[in-house]
Every structure is written in structure tokens, then in C-alpha cells.
Simulated scan of single mutants.
Amino acid sequence: MSTKIRVVLSSFTRPLFESLAPHTRRVGLPETKKIYTVLRSPHTDKKSKEQFETRVQKHVLDIKAKRHELRQKLTSYGWSLI
């Protein structure tokens, strides 16, 4: 009996998918981007501003395996099971 598990990964950098097994399907979700604008100097030059951004990339992984192999596969990817 095979079990299918769906995992959503979100990270600030690109996750490494080279180590995934061939029976794992990866679906990319839209990337979210937040831009923060900060004054460079709080006392003078109110027009002088600096912008920072954070990008969060999300992916959905469909892992298909037998029940007793599923725990081994998740720990081999480096994920901890709670």
C-alpha cells in the first residue's frame, strides 16, 4: 500500500531539488515579494530613502511511497518529523 503526502516548502532561497527522488513531483507556487522603505537618516534629508526586499518562494512536493519508507525518505531530505 503506497501513501501520498503533500508538503509545502517556503524559503528565502531556492531549495535544492537535485536530491529529490524521481517519484517526487514538484509544483511551483507564486513568489511573494515584500518591499520595505526606510529613511536613511531620521533627522535630516527626509527625501533620502533606502529600499529592502524579501522574497519568499513556495513549492508543493507530492511524495509517493510505502508507509514504512515514508519516514526514511523525509529524514533523508533533512526534515524533522514532529
Rank of each mutant, 00 (worst) to 15 (best):
L39E: 12
I82L: 10
L20Y: 00
T3D: 07
P15Q: 04
S19R: 12
S48F: 05
A21F: 13
I5V: 14
W79D: 00
P42S: 14
V60S: 08
E50M: 14
L9D: 04
Y36A: 02
I5N: 03
K73P: 00
K46S: 10
T75V: 08
V60M: 14
K64M: 01
I35A: 07
T44W: 14
W79G: 00
V27E: 14
E53P: 01
Y77K: 00
S48A: 09
A21D: 15
R71P: 01
T75C: 04
M1E: 12
E50Y: 13
D62C: 07
K46T: 08
K64F: 03
S76W: 00
T75R: 08
D62P: 07
P15Y: 02
R14H: 09
S2W: 03
V8W: 00
L74E: 00
R67F: 02
V27L: 14
L39P: 04
D62N: 08
A65I: 07
S41Q: 09
T54R: 15
S2F: 03
L70A: 06
H43N: 00
I82K: 06
R14C: 01
G78T: 04
V7R: 07
Q51A: 03
L29I: 09
K33T: 13
H59V: 05
A65Y: 05
L39T: 11
I63P: 03
K66S: 04
A65D: 13
V8Q: 03
R55K: 13
S19N: 11
K73I: 03
L16R: 15
I5H: 01
Y36H: 10
T13P: 05
I82A: 04
T54S: 13
R26I: 13
K46R: 14
Y36P: 00
E69Q: 12
F52Y: 12
R26V: 13
S80T: 15
